[in-house]
Every structure is written in C-alpha cells, then in structure tokens.
Design a protein around this nucleic acid. Structure first.
Lengths: 256, 256
DNA sequence: CTTGTAAAACCGATCATACCAATTGGTAAA
DNA sequence: TTTACCAATTGGTATGATCGGTTTTACAAG
C-alpha cells in the first residue's frame, strides 16, 4: 500500500480532476476521436490514482458524452459531432432548412402585427452588417444572420418560439454536414440574401402577418434551391434523391 | 464471495440500473427535492450492491445534474428547475401551446400530402386509446396523445421537424408550471379532445394540407381557450395578463 | 500459405475491505 | 452561555481479487 498522500487539499473530487486531465489529453489530440484510451489499469498508473478513480472519471466523461465505454474492450473517444450533439439527431441541411422555413415563417407571422419600431431599426442594422464585406466578413455576416432571425423570433414575445428558433440555429452550427452545406451556399449569393432579408423587413414594417410569412418562406425557398444546386455539384447523390422527393412535397404544402 | 448472480442479462451496466432505481425513488416522491439521500453504505445494503456501485450511480446522477454530492455530508436531490432545465427556458403553458399551434400545424400540413395509409390507421388506434377511460386512463391517454402528435411529425419524413416536436413535448412534460395547467385542462373535455383529433385525422385522410393545418390550429386554439379559463379560475393573474394580450395577437396572426 | 478456431492475454464490471478526510452534533470545559 | 474538542457519520480513495466479455495469438486443418 504505497503512497497516496498527495492532493488532499480543497474540495474538488479526485475523479473530476482526473476527468479533466483525460479530457485534456483528448483535446490536445493525443487521443483523437475514435481512438481507444489506455486501459483502466494503465491509466491509473500513469495518472497516479487508483483504478476506482479512473473508473469514476470515465463514467463521468461517458455521462457527458465524451467517450464510449465498451465492456471487455476499452473506452473510445467520441466524435465531436456525435457528442456535443447532446441528443441532436443527425439531420441533413435540407431537412433543417425545410423545418426552419416552416417554423420561422410562422414566427415572423406572429411577430409582425405589433412589432416595435426599435426592433425594426435593429433588423435594418443587422442587414447592413450582413452585407458589408470586411475582412472576416463571413464570421460577421453569419453572426448578423443569426441575430436577424433570433431577433424576429424574440419579438414574438413568446419564449418557447424563441427557444425553438435558437434550437434550430444550434443544429445549423453544430452538425458538421449541415455547416458545410450552409457555408458553401452562403459564400455565394450575398447580394440576393440581402435582398431577401430586406423583403422580410419590409413585410414586418407593414405589420402584415401574411406578407411576413411569405417573405420568410421565400427566403428559405431560395436558400433551399441554391442548396440543391450546391449539393448536386458536390455529387451528393443520396441527399439529392431525398431532396427531390421532398422538394415536391414541400412546395406542395407551401402553397400560400 | 456472496451472491451477485442476479441480472446477468443484456449489457446494461449495473451502476446504470442502480442510477435508474435511485432516480425512480426520487421521481416517486420518496426523496423530494432538497432532501438528503441515504448514505452510500445504507443504499448499498438496500439496493443489494456494493458501495462502489452506489458511488458510480451517484456520480452518474450528479453528471446528469439530478443530485448534488457534498463531501462528509451526503447526496442531496436537486430542484427540477435547476436541474433538467439543462437549457430549457421557463415558459408558460400559454407560450408553449402557442408555439405548438404554430409549429405542429405546419408539420401536419407538411405531412398531409402523401401520408401512409398505415400511419392513418395507427393514428385512429391512438385516438381510441386516448378516449378509453380505463383505470390509469390519464397516463394512457397522455401517452397516446404524445404518440399521436409525434407520429404526425414523424410522417413528414423530416427528422428536424420530428426533433422540434419532440422538444416541444419535452417542455410540456418537464416544466412544472406547464404540466399543472395541461393536466387540469386535459382532465376536463376528453370528449371534445377526441373530436378534435378525429378532425385532424380526417383532414390527413383527405391529404389536404390546408385542412390539416386548420384542424391542428383549431385543436390548439380550443386547448388554448380552455387553458385560459382554467388559469383564470386559478387566479393566475400574471399569466392571464400576458395571455389576454397574446391571445389577440395570436388570433390575428392565425387568420387563415 | 490461407483459413478456422480455440486458447491465452486483456480488459472492463463488480465486490469486499480498509483507511483517510470532511462534516456534524454532542459534550465538556471556560 | 459560549467555546473547544472529540466521536460518530459520511463521502473519498486505494488494493486486490474474481468474473465474464473482447481481442489477439497460435496452432492445426485444409
């Protein structure tokens, strides 16, 4: 029974600091996604703690979704995408955009009737920010785009609506396959996008629910179309199949 | 050397089933929020596992935010609100229903055009289940209600839409203040509810997007109205204020 | 040389036990 | 009454052993 007279300080549980250290090893790239961590025994020796502690740390990391533990085999590092997802299902860019079209259009319609003038001004500012092409323009524009849509959702005064729109945006950001498509699409028609956003703003200005809904739908419909082009270019055969079938269905239901 | 010849089935880790059992004790009200759980030793004896396993289960529960562990003192049950909230904002039953009305109506409209006959049959079965008043009828009906709405969302073929509707239902279940209102409302007009669901089903049967959207909207609109009555009865002044203002806005934007 | 399979090596799952450290509550001393 | 201290309780960590599942190895059959 050799020494275990180290860190008896503070209140931090040992297993948590061990979990931090393991997470650090993962983040630093020593154990890339998909790779297998050393066995509990080896880790215990390396980190100078008992096996029980390593075990607790790994259970903790598993609960956080950072690793998968397979009995008799080992602990494996999860992909960032599967992990932080925290329950976010894997959806295609097309599906997400279709969902956004449906929901955000309704949010816009709900917000339109009595939207604040102050909010309208803020939206105008955001459109400008979206179109300015400074260095790091992509980052700024994306942020402004996000703020634009969230501001509208927020001005419904309904926190549930805002939460859903936030969730949709979160999916757009955190799902790898979605990000890729969106990024390549957005880098294209920045001019057209400004135009679409302006149309949405005008509809809101006139406090016209129907017009706001239509403008938002159009925005997403156009986005959807250029998205289909991009995915075709990239020969995403699978996605296109789905998309073609869904597009008809979508356009059918979208008749306003 | 004593017995551990129980559940050697499947692959579920022991500590996880122990965590489930402890969570069950919490949910059943045996250990209300704020209360202290029995010590690790006592729990180990009660649940017939080793202390280490109890520890692992408690660490897991802590990672999920269900309990707080304080060294030398004990493990304490967290308040629902601080815990599973996990990002779910605190919204009123009214806000949630408004959001559901907007989004699920669109989901129904999207699903309508080419919905499977098999799905339609399943929906019919669910309506029957919803209206049967056996013992435990409330539980069964609620489950059937959930399945009904999720089935429609699922038949859009769009996983993002399904996820959003799932999220909305999760909010309905996990937010205390929402549950209360929904429960008291649902216990009322079970007959009317069946009627409304049937109307939705019929609209879907005719593959009519517009009709499906309208039927779903009506369903929620009626729900909203009886909800307003209930909250008035309960003298939820604050909520009613919000609700009255929002109702006008909602009805305005809902003109189809 | 390839292939199949069974043994061996590894590994996580769990348990029992022991001791350390922090918290708490009661009791004795001031 | 207040303070100081001690003992019981409780969580924290360490060892070492056993069990059953997984992966690898090695050897025999083809």
């Amino acid at each position: 029974m050799a020494g275990q007279e180290r860190r008896m300080m503070k209140d931090k549980r040992l297993y948590q600091s061990v979990a931090d250290r393991i997470a650090g090893l993962i983040d630093s790239g020593i154990y890339p996604p998909g790779s297998r961590l050393p066995g509990e025994r080896e880790l215990a020796e390396t980190l100078e703690v008992s096996r029980v502690t390593v075990r607790e740390a790994e259970i903790f990391l598993q609960a956080l979704g950072r690793i998968d533990i397979k009995t008799g085999s080992g602990a494996y590092v999860r992909n960032k995408s599967d992990q932080s997802a925290g329950g976010i299902p894997s959806v295609s860019a097309f599906e997400l955009t279709e969902a956004r079209s449906l929901f955000e259009s309704e949010a816009a319609a709900l917000a339109a009737p009595d939207i604040d003038n102050e909010v309208l001004n803020r939206l105008e500012t955001l459109i400008e920010k979206m179109m300015s092409d400074e260095p790091d323009g992509a980052q700024v524009a994306e942020q402004a785009d996000r703020d634009f849509h969230l501001t509208i959702a927020s001005s419904t005064g309904n926190k549930a609506v805002l939460y859903i729109v936030e969730t949709l945006w979160k999916m757009r950001m955190e799902l790898e396959q979605v990000r890729e498509v969106y990024d390549s699409v957005c880098s294209e028609d920045s001019a057209a996008r400004g135009q679409e956003h302006t149309e949405i703003l005008e509809a809101l200005r006139s406090r016209d629910s129907g017009a706001a809904r239509s403008a938002m739908r159009q925005h997403f419909t156009r986005l959807l179309k250029s998205m289909l082009d991009v995915t075709e270019e990239q020969a995403f055969e699978e996605l296109r199949q789905r998309a073609t079938a869904s597009r008809e269905r979508f356009l059918k239901s979208a008749q306003l």
